[in-house]
Design a protein around this nucleic acid. Structure first.
Length: 456
RNA sequence: GUGGGCGUAGCUCAGUCGGUUAGAGCGCCGGAUUGUGGUUCCGGAGGUCGCCGGUUCGAAUCCGGUCGCCCACCCCA
């Protein structure tokens, strides 16, 4: 039998060091931002009882579940989203917790769907939720985290926007234009896909729902021009609608005060697909409109109760790594890979090898990242390897140095070199200041920092 | 799940009215260079042309199937 070859499962990713570095960069930014807002990180199992999703999530999610029966006959599924896990955890333990609960997580999620750009069968998400606070300040706070999580990666107002709406407002508008309550869900679906379907198809869909011409025209014009001002004018004499606009006005005022108003835009067509949202909803998109949603979220005040917990209002979002990473690549915001080595030990002949490894190890014990050649090589080869490893210094040990318990330290950037005692080298580090091993490259990424990676 | 496009070296791709040893650039390895790197020059390795089958004297090239990737629908991170 010839050896069998195994390829990666479709929709799954390998993270070789360069790609893992980018993933870690995103994760670190997410954690830094969420922590800055006072959120605590949690996690749960990647495998959950199938019922947790079947009962609560819609048929959409259930059709995409990775599920199977385990050896104990339990029906289980890989988690397709984090919110049910959060709800399950809190249903059990929220009663004793001070409210509001501010939690975030970076779960890997799984959905069996056909993969395409921005959509895989596995992805990581930043999930941020505030549970136990119904005020609109919590909605604004959560959206601010989402915006800052993206801003922290170097993207700005020109790159992305949060489109915001309120489920309650849409309901009031539908009622105001005369749509029967039992038609609301269908209407939401039409509004949701209006941007993709275009005005003609949308008009046809609305007529197919049996809306009269007046209602259809009003909705059509709101979809075509769903600005805040337009809404105010159109419903100036409908108190029910004006009242329903108040939470969003306050929401916007808070974000303006935070200096994030430029990232927020009212959009009547953002209603979001699934059922559990009850109030303000939002999605983050790239401004160019080339990619799928970066992030989606909103208020879900009923969910915890539905899962058997105490009735607690909640608001949160999920932000996926796949689309966001594509956007970073497009905008050249992927930071150059940091070198893994501070100091490369070079020995002239095999006789100096044990001394070199001894010095190298003592430098490592003081925190310096040290590499050296694992086989016999000429000096030129070793320096070449040092250069490629990104080392700032080469420590050269030959017969002369060995005889005098010293080493030649070469600054690989400037080419300057001097000879000093091994004792001094180990005590002060190759840079002479003991600082070479710490604090390198933690600044924010700069544009154009990607392609130049192989400047060597 | 439905429809369309595309699969040639590690990467980006060229090569098809069917023709004998399948190419380039980059990357990788080695040498020039046995006490001094980045440049340059020279050399080398690496391919069952996604896979299976069919047509043919002959298939990377044509046909069928299959798998994978991409795009659209659907929906969403």
């Amino acid at each position: 039998m010839p050896p069998q070859s195994f390829s990666r499962l479709p929709g799954f990713r390998d993270f070789v060091p360069g790609e893992l570095a980018l993933r870690n960069h995103v994760f670190e930014t997410w954690r830094r931002v969420a922590t800055r807002y006072g959120f605590h990180e949690y996690d749960g199992p990647p495998l959950e009882p199938l019922g947790l999703y079947v009962e609560k999530s819609g048929a959409e999610i259930v059709g995409q579940l990775y599920n199977f029966d385990d050896k104990g006959g339990r029906r289980v599924a890989l988690r397709p989203e984090m919110t049910p896990t959060l709800a399950r955890i809190l249903a059990e333990r929220s009663r004793g917790m001070p409210k509001p609960i501010r939690w975030f997580s970076l779960p890997q999620l799984f959905r069996y769907e056909r993969s395409q750009r921005g959509r895989l069968r596995e992805h990581f998400q930043l999930n941020v939720d505030i549970v136990g606070e119904s005020g609109v300040a919590a909605d604004a706070e959560v959206l601010a985290v989402a915006v800052d999580a993206v801003r922290g990666l170097g993207l700005g107002e020109d790159d992305f926007v949060a489109r915001v709406n309120d489920r309650r407002l849409v309901t009031r508008v539908l009622t105001a234009v005369g749509v029967a309550a039992d038609r609301h869900a269908d209407c939401l679906a039409v509004i949701d896909k209006a941007g993709r379907a275009g005005p003609d198809a949308t008009g046809a869909s609305l007529r197919a729902l049996g809306l009269d011409a007046g209602a259809g025209d009003t909705l059509g014009s709101l979809i075509a021009d769903g600005t805040w001002e337009h809404m105010k004018q159109r419903f100036a004499d409908v108190p029910a609608v004006l009242e329903a606009m108040r939470p969003l006005a306050e929401h916007r005022a808070i974000l303006d005060a935070m200096g994030l108003g430029g990232y927020v835009q009212f959009d009547f067509t953002v209603v979001r697909g699934l059922a559990y949202y009850t109030g303000i909803v939002f999605e983050l998109f790239d401004r160019a409109g080339e990619l799928r949603a970066i992030c989606g979220g909103g208020r879900y005040d009923r969910l915890l109760e539905l899962v058997g917990g105490e009735p607690l209002p909640a608001v949160g979002f999920g932000m996926g790594d796949v689309v966001l990473t594509e956007l970073l690549r497009d905008r050249a915001l992927v930071p150059a890979e940091a070198p893994a080595c501070d100091c490369y030990i070079v020995w002239v002949g095999d006789e100096e090898r044990t001394l070199g490894m001894s010095v190298g190890h003592r430098l490592r014990e003081s925190g310096c990242r040290v590499m050296y050649s694992l086989r016999s090589q000429g000096l030129g080869k070793q320096l070449k390897a040092a250069n490629r490893a990104g080392a700032a210094y080469a420590v050269i040990i030959g017969p002369d140095e060995a005889a005098s318990a010293s080493a030649t330290v070469r600054d690989l950037r400037t080419g300057a070199q001097d000879t000093r005692s091994l004792e001094s080298l180990i005590e002060h580090g190759p840079g002479g200041d003991r600082a070479t091993s710490l604090g390198s490259g933690t600044g924010p990424p700069s544009r154009g920092g990607r392609a130049e990676r192989k400047a060597t």
